[in-house]
Simulated assay, not measured.
Amino acid sequence: MAAQPRDETGPRHVAIIMDGNGRWATNRGRPRLFGHHAGARRVREVVEACPEVGVDYLTIFAFSTENWKRTQVEVAGLMSLFRRYIAKETRALRDRNVRVRFIGDRVRLDAKLIQLMDDLERETETCTGTNLTIALNYGGRDEVARATKRLARDVRDGKLDPEEVTVETLPRYLDTHVLPDPDLVIRTSGEARISNFLLWQSAYAEYEFVDTLWPDFTAEEFASLVGSYGKRDRRFGGVKT
């Protein structure tokens, strides 16, 4: 289906906390990694739906800084899944004109995964369609702490006057500095919390908490949530007259 003319009342940037893979698998008597593989397949469907519903930017929460607390087997399986997903999807993403970026701290990731991430970003850097951002080893507090360190170094080195530090300054040091703030954040699986995701960027985002487990989250449900966004009264602290 061809991309539809952009609906200016709809969200330009949607962020998704993809929750429920493990429970989805457990409900079927399968290991948790089975659910993560099913969830990875669902990502493709949602990415492909973005042009159809007028979403220019999609950010997905793939692995948090807290997810290292999971079992060694699950973490190793997830890292293997990320490597396989990137290697398998690189050509398809480029062919669909999807620009891919990664956010998060790469220090704890293995060299092979980092290389694949770098390659995917390079392979898609000229794409002009959907902007897909994958949050991998990402945490909102960690991101702000890293950004503050970079800002502090610039102050120390005389590149930034402390009096120039404002709410407009810090975002330039965030992982997402090239992205617009999310308009809509969706969390699947029935949990109603934000789990340290895009804390600074989502200050004025609208939220949708849905009961659907991520592997069951369809493009149709995604389109419905995007469509309902335009019916919200967004005042950003002001009062409409």
Rank of each mutant, 00 (worst) to 15 (best):
V47P: 14
V165R: 05
S202I: 10
L213M: 15
D216G: 06
G35A: 02
V144H: 10
E8P: 06
G158L: 03
A2T: 12
I134G: 03
A92V: 01
T9A: 09
R150Q: 03
D118I: 01
E220Q: 11
F217K: 09
N131A: 13
L113T: 09
R83W: 00
V47A: 14
V100T: 00
A147L: 08
S224D: 15
W200D: 09
L179E: 11
Q115G: 06
Q201M: 11
A38R: 12
D19N: 09
R141F: 01
Y138S: 04
T90N: 02
R28N: 07
W200L: 04
R94D: 06
D233S: 08
G29P: 12
A192C: 14
G139D: 09
P182S: 03
S224K: 12
R106W: 02
L81T: 11
G230E: 13
K159P: 00
R23E: 15
P215L: 06
V46C: 06
R122K: 08
M18E: 03
L93F: 14
L33P: 01
E123Q: 12
Y138A: 05
K149P: 04
V14D: 05
R172A: 14
E221A: 04
R193Q: 14
A219S: 07
I186A: 11
E221T: 01
Y57K: 12
R235S: 12
N131V: 12
Y207W: 10
E123Y: 07
T241Q: 15
L184Y: 11
R106Q: 11
V43T: 07
L33V: 06
E45M: 06
E45H: 06
S202H: 02
D7G: 00
R6G: 02
L213A: 08
V185R: 15
R232H: 10
A2N: 14
E143I: 04
G158K: 08
E163R: 15
A192E: 15
D181H: 08
T188W: 01
